[in-house]
Nucleic acid binder design. Structure first.
Ligand SMILES: [Mn+2]
Ligand SMILES: [Mn+2]
Ligand SMILES: [Zn+2]
Ligand SMILES: [Zn+2]
Lengths: 131, 131
DNA sequence: CTTATTATTGCAACACAGTCGCAATAGTAT
DNA sequence: ATACTATTGCGACTGTGTTGCAATAATAAG
């Protein structure tokens, strides 16, 4: 089977399937570390990052930057393959560390001539469970 | 003169005044590195961070987290000393690196029981000058 | 099934951001 | 001038995320 001219398709490995199902099982966005702790098998840190970056490239996962500067990854739910925008906020609880998607899509008007490529909205505080 | 019971007032030093005026001169948010490069005198990295953190504590400056996970600092303009909220977006140009405040204040509704402590909104892309 | 191709992995090394302890320095009040 | 202590520089440290390289393993082809 042919794929894009210069590259083969993604390969299905133990690491990729486990990371993917971990993200599916979680209802929230996870850091590389949270993922690593959930995995049944041992997977190298670098590999986890590479897998996640691939997932993002392929549009299966979106990346969130916390107010702590760290990356969190969440499965894409209702994503158009075409118009792949994740303009929604996330909430990170400073107590339990959970990072949730807030679902409502936001629209931000930019000054004339500005081109948006990436959206990152995050509110941190204390979640209902921890309050 | 008395200040809060356990701590002396802030002291005016060459570092603090220079960093402050650098932020005033800049129309945009700056990283610790951008600041360091602008300074006339040499100031240690750790000191710059400490000064900036103090400015944030005192509510003179607000902190922005880029989609690159890095911190940027901008002077507070029209800030109430009481209700000190910076619920506006920022735009970071991936080409020239400039980080601008988008001024319009945003309101985000959180699920019941959630308490917001911090807002970070950032859109990255290409600015009008670089487009 | 066997073989060839090459995507994926583990490991080590790296770059960088941001923090912190400690001793030296320098504002500020008296 | 002196005492007090906030601030600084330095070095060391933690943690995140990336990358080069050689070994491994998924997949297609025969
Ligand atoms: Mn999300
Ligand atoms: Mn701002
Ligand atoms: Zn919580
Ligand atoms: Zn630009």
């Amino acid at each position: 089977m042919q794929h894009s001219r210069n590259s083969m398709a993604r390969r299905k490995t133990e690491s990729t399937t486990q990371i993917l199902s971990t993200l599916k099982a979680a209802s929230s966005a996870m850091s590389h570390q949270m993922i690593q702790e959930e995995l049944d098998i041992e997977v190298d840190r670098a590999t986890i990052y590479r897998v996640l970056n691939r997932f993002c490239e392929d549009g299966m996962v979106h990346r969130v930057i916390g107010e702590n500067g760290k990356q969190y990854f969440a499965l894409c739910e209702g994503c158009e393959k075409e118009n792949h925008s994740h303009n929604h906020f996330h909430f990170r609880c400073k107590n339990c560390g959970k990072v949730e998607c807030l679902s409502r899509e936001i629209e931000i008007k930019l000054p004339a001539g500005y081109v948006a490529q990436n959206f990152n909205g995050l509110i941190s505080g204390v979640c209902a469970q921890c309050a």
